[in-house]
Structure formats: C-alpha cells, structure tokens
Design a protein around this nucleic acid. Sequence first.
DNA 1: TTTGAGAAAATGAACGTTCATTCAGTGATA
DNA 2: TATCACTGAATGAACGTTCATTTTCTCAAA
Lengths: 200, 200
Amino acid sequence: MASDKKQLILSTVLDLVKQTGFYHLNMKAIAERAGISAGTIYLYFKSKEELINELYQTVLGEFNQAVLHSYAPEVGFSGNFEAMLRAAVDFYLPRKDYFSFIEQYTYAPFLFKESQEENFSLLLPIFKLLRQGKKEGLVKAFPEPVLISIIHGTLNTILKMHFAHKLDLRKKSVYQSFCTAVREAVTNPANKDSLPTPHP
Amino acid sequence: MASDKKQLILSTVLDLVKQTGFYHLNMKAIAERAGISAGTIYLYFKSKEELINELYQTVLGEFNQAVLHSYAPEVGFSGNFEAMLRAAVDFYLPRKDYFSFIEQYTYAPFLFKESQEENFSLLLPIFKLLRQGKKEGLVKAFPEPVLISIIHGTLNTILKMHFAHKLDLRKKSVYQSFCTAVREAVTNPANKDSLPTPHP
DNA sequence: TTTGAGAAAATGAACGTTCATTCAGTGATA
DNA sequence: TATCACTGAATGAACGTTCATTTTCTCAAA
C-alpha cells in the first residue's frame, strides 16, 4: 500500500539519523537503506525538506499524545505533574532515534519559524499544569521561563546522558532520583499541615 | 602578523555561525566576510574541520578560564557554587556567538570522539566543587549525573531561552531567580543552627 | 482461465548546483 | 632577482532533484 511505503521511508530516516547523524543524511542513503530507489522517495514527498518536516511533526505528535494520555483530572496537581514527567521520560527512553532526531532537527537548516517556536513548547501540557499549580501555591514563585528551563533542561540533559551511557535511567533508583529532583526543584516543600492524612 | 589573520578568520567564523548557522557556513563566505580569499584560509588551517575544531577548543578554553577565575578558596562551598554559576552565565550572556557555536558544534559532523566526551564536562570545575559539597552534606544526595543534569540542563536551556527572547537574563530579578532555583534544586535547605551568625 | 492493454509505481542515470580544496599566477618587498 | 603572502579560477566530489524508461499491477474481454 502507498502509506506503507511512506512509513517505511519515515522510519528509515529515523534509523539513519540515529546511526549516522543529520549531517550525513542523504536521499541516496535513505533509498538504499529502505531498499527502494532515490526517485521513489519523490513520489511520496515533495522534497527532502518536506520529508524531514513531516517526520518532525509525526514524532512531536506521538510524544504529545503520550504525555497527554497520562493526564488524569482526578489526581490533582502533584499526581499529574509526576505522571507527565514520567510519561515524557518513558516515551523517549525506548526511542533513542526519536530523541536523536528531535535534538538534531533543531539546528537543521529546514526549520520553519513556527517549528523553531515549537521547540520550547515541547512540554506544553506540563507547562499548562505548572501555571495551575502556581496559582494554588504548590509551585515555587519563579518566573515561568525559569521553571520551564529547569524541567525542560534537566529532562533533556538527563536523556542525553542516558543515551551517552553516563547513567542508566532504567535503574529505578536513578529514575526516582530524577523525578524527586525535578519535583523538589519546582514545587514548594509540602506543608505537613496540608498533607492529606490517610486515617484522620 | 600571522596570528592576526588567524584570529580574524576565527572570529569571522563565530560571526557567521551566529548569523547564518552552522549548516550554511562555507569557506567562501568566511573568506568574503573576512575580506580575504578562500585560498588564504588554507595557509592558516589545514582544513575546514581543523578550523572548526580549533575554534571549539578556543571557546572552551576561554570559558573554563572565566569560570575557574571566579573560584576563591576562602568563601567556602556555597559562595563558590554561586560564583561559578554566575561566571558561567556572565560568560555567555554577552557572547551569543560563542553559545550558538558550542551548541551547534555538538551535532556537527566534525566532532571527534574526545570532543564528544568533553561536552558534558563543560562545567567541570563546578562538578568538582559539587563532589566536595556532597561530602560536606550541603548537596542533595542524588546521583552525580542527576545533579549535573540539573545544572547543565537548566543553564543551557535558560541561555537558549534568553537568546530566543523568551526571557531577559539581564534583569536582576530573573537572573536572581535562576540562581536561587538552581541552588535550591541542588543543595539541601540551609539548617538555621549551622548558619554563620553575623554578630554572635 | 488466459490475454493484453492501459494505469500506476518504481527505477536509476543524468543534470545542475554547491562546496571544500588545490595550485598556477600576481605583485609587493627586500 | 628571490621571497613571500596572497589570490581566485579550476577541480572534482557530493548532493538534491528530475524524468525518460521499465516493471508491476489491474481488470475487462475473450
């Protein structure tokens, strides 16, 4: 089917970017790896630029869906914050190719203005939650961009380090440390008086 | 003088990377902007790769020097931690070209294995300090890579946001928020008993 | 079931462009 | 004249894209 081949091309690009990097990506290499000819790619994509941009949107879409899916209105701010942070990590952890692609896309020459913007809103759902938590006094009173930097920056770097084998996020203890660290960095210390008491 | 022209070439590259990006950097553009011919560049550098790598080492060296220079043995852990964090910010704040170059270099095809390593050790002096502070119980008991992620990641992202005009680090309040945020994220809450009392 | 003609998909050689690198030539200075 | 830094046209490799041609698929007629 037609969309099969399109999918094949897209996943081949992910594969190649992970393995050889964005700079060495070329249409012939994509074609070879996918077992098709270079010309065929142009039956499914108008240009290399369009191909890359479509892949970017796809990856971003999948990510957003994964994070949003972890949101549950009933568990309140703290529960949702941790859940979405974990969802973000869990999404990329088994998808080094996705992470690598998103990372390198940022500095590719294709980047539309709109996409450039988007890059900071990668964790948009989390940031929304943040604003809510701030109103409730649960989140520290730092300017929003500072809070974003902590979450986005820490997440980004820890994933990078994980994939560079500087740490192993699959270890429960490391994973937990990361979550705790981000929570503590962003939220006010829990007031004992306001803690929900299991048995009043 | 010979080193004058070398310097001219190096700073021209910084300029061009900032303005047009790494991908569009080419030898002819460098030559034109520097007011020399393309061939001349090859009198001072063996190749484009060598040129870029030398520039990378230069920028890194300047940065390390700036951060190390801010270290003062007499002010203890907290004082030094804040001083070095500030030194790092202060270094890049007026040097968008440096920051942009370092950022994009990471994903350039030139990257040697050694340089790849180096990228996480960008804040090496700070990390050394961290280890010391951990022993003294001043730093939170997270795995070191987690602490590194917080500092490196947050610093990196906040600079990126600053240069993208998402915030203004030149504002005292924003700057202070950032410093406080990182300190709180990394260090244990100060114990009032152990605070140095100005007038005992 | 077989045939075959027309549609759709795929091919890969060829093209034009860009780019790093080279080198024969230029001109100023000693 | 000899030396030197410098020039910029020439070179060739790499790349995205195109398109004339071939292959594969489809399905109605025999």
